[in-house]
Design a binder for these strands. Structure first.
Length: 434
RNA sequence: GUGGCCUUAGCUCAACCGGCAGAGCAUCGGAUUGUGGCUCCGAAGGUUACGGGUUCAAGCCCCGUAGGCCACCCCA
């Protein structure tokens, strides 16, 4: 075992896997741009209070998973920060700080980057993980709720996960949720004797969580528990029906999930999560999001509605690997590798390769001083289409152009080399793509 | 934060009852001093995760720590 390892719950993204991530990020950027979302980046850490206030002080994310950092010279200067456990609170903080309410509304933003939670690591669960995030601030919906869900499904199919299903629910708002929670509490209190120990303590702290329980003994109790849909106020009910109508118009068939609740306090009304059929465990959500109509105000802004989602790129990559890589990372292949007959003469190789790159070609020189056979072996292994062999004929202005795939070779004037390679590259593309 | 299983070369794994730490793949070199893929030969690669204990002797037994996986919890 090496002396130093990546910290617990983190990992290195090595070349093949890193390119999968880059392609996911590229797909995310393309989609978000086409849908009219502007890229934003916020600091990787915020004042702890931003999360305590925004995410909620009694949520697990803040209570036990916050990655706290402290820095500063003296005790007085020392500040309390936390690495971002999710992107929304920071983005909303930026919205308020920079007066984005004076921008054209709604403000549509996207961010892709690492998030941090100090949780016990497990497969698909890391202390540093990547999210593709999208937020719309200033539109009360419900049409935009449907649009954003459609955007997420478009992302999943764009990267090769065609069977992802969205689970939706409405969790009400300040007008109706309190009454529902009270009804739920009453229901479970009346059956407290039947509750497992853990669930009994939950009943006191957060009754909504009982609906999430995977304890088998809870299943029948949950099945006959009052549902939020029966308790939605008129405004929330209309909003939810509006969402469903818009989804139907987009041919998206959501799975209604009356027990879906979210772990962060800021959510109101629309809540949704994405799963693949057969992988619907709690730790297997590919993404999730919802509406947060009270958050901007909580963070010191004017009352402003908002909605967004986050997609876990680590889990998407995992899912892709499981279905044997629709996104198998295409290796970067050079058009040519420049090799030399004189093992010691790295000067000409570097010169020739630099000229070819100047002409726009993807190529590199073999700069080792190993013999020609080894250099060619390396070129072949790198997947190069051609090897440019620099030898004695260079004195007459020629090199050998070897087609590594065909095993053929011919002499070419150095002055024609770039043109020849570019033409071959273009032909190869057309032939290869068909 | 709680519990279970696990950790030997870069990777996948051997090593009898406690008795010289090994193989395949990968890497590098040679056969081939100007021609890749195949083949053959060779080299390098280890504080057996780390620290302690028991023993004549520990990869193996005991204790602790770190890390991994799984379940709980929770989210992405």
């Amino acid at each position: 075992m090496p002396k130093f390892q990546a910290p617990r719950g983190t990992r290195d993204l090595l070349p093949p896997e890193r390119s999968v991530f880059l392609r996911l990020e590229e797909a995310a950027r393309d989609l978000a741009t086409r849908y009219g979302y502007q890229p934003i980046e916020t600091p990787l850490f915020e004042q702890t209070a931003v999360y305590e206030r925004g995410v909620g002080e009694v949520t697990d994310v803040v209570e036990k998973e916050l990655f706290r950092v402290q820095a500063g010279r003296g005790d007085e200067e020392r500040e309390r920060w936390a690495l971002r456990p999710e992107p929304t609170a920071g983005i909303v903080r930026a919205y308020v700080q920079h007066g984005m309410r004076t921008w054209a509304q709604p403000v549509k933003l996207t961010l892709t980057g690492p998030m941090f939670r100090y949780d016990r690591p497990q497969a698909g669960r890391y202390r540093q993980f990547w999210q593709f995030d999208v937020e719309v601030i200033g539109d009360p919906g419900p049409a935009v709720d449907a649009e954003i869900i459609e955007l997420a499904t478009a992302f999943f199919s764009a990267v090769g996960l065609s069977d992802v299903q969205v689970h939706v629910n409405s969790i009400g708002d300040g007008a109706c949720r309190p009454a529902y929670i009270a009804a739920l509490r009453d229901y479970f209190r009346a059956r407290e004797a039947e509750l497992p120990e853990l669930e009994r303590t939950r009943l006191a702290t957060n009754p909504l969580r009982l609906l999430d329980s995977k304890d088998e003994r809870m299943a029948p109790l949950i099945a006959s528990a009052p549902t939020i849909s029966q308790h939605l106020c008129e405004a929330c009910r209309e909003h939810f029906e509006g969402l469903l109508a818009h989804l139907e118009a987009l041919s998206i068939e959501p799975r209604l999930a009356p027990t879906l609740v979210r772990g962060l306090d800021y959510y109101t009304r629309t809540a949704f999560e994405f799963y693949r059929p057969g992988a619907e465990g709690q730790q297997q959500a590919l993404g999730g999001g919802g509406r947060y109509d009270g958050l901007v105000e909580l963070l010191g802004g004017q009352p402003t509605p908002g909605i967004g989602f986050g997609i876990g790129l680590d889990r998407v990559a995992l899912a892709l690997a499981e279905q044997s890589a629709a996104l198998s990372p295409e290796h970067w292949r050079p058009a040519a590798v420049v090799v030399g007959a004189d093992a010691q003469d790295t000067v000409v190789r570097l010169q020739v390769a630099t000229e070819l790159r100047g002409a726009g070609l993807a190529c590199w020189p073999d700069l080792t001083t190993r013999r020609l056979g080894k250099q060619l072996e390396g070129a072949g292994r790198a997947g190069a289409h051609f090897a440019v062999i620099c030898g004695d004929e260079l004195e007459e202005g020629h090199v050998q152009l070897r087609d590594l795939e065909a095993g053929t070779q011919r002499q070419v004037a150095v002055t024609d080399l770039a043109r020849e390679l570019l033409r071959a590259q273009a032909q190869h593309r057309h032939g290869g793509d068909g």
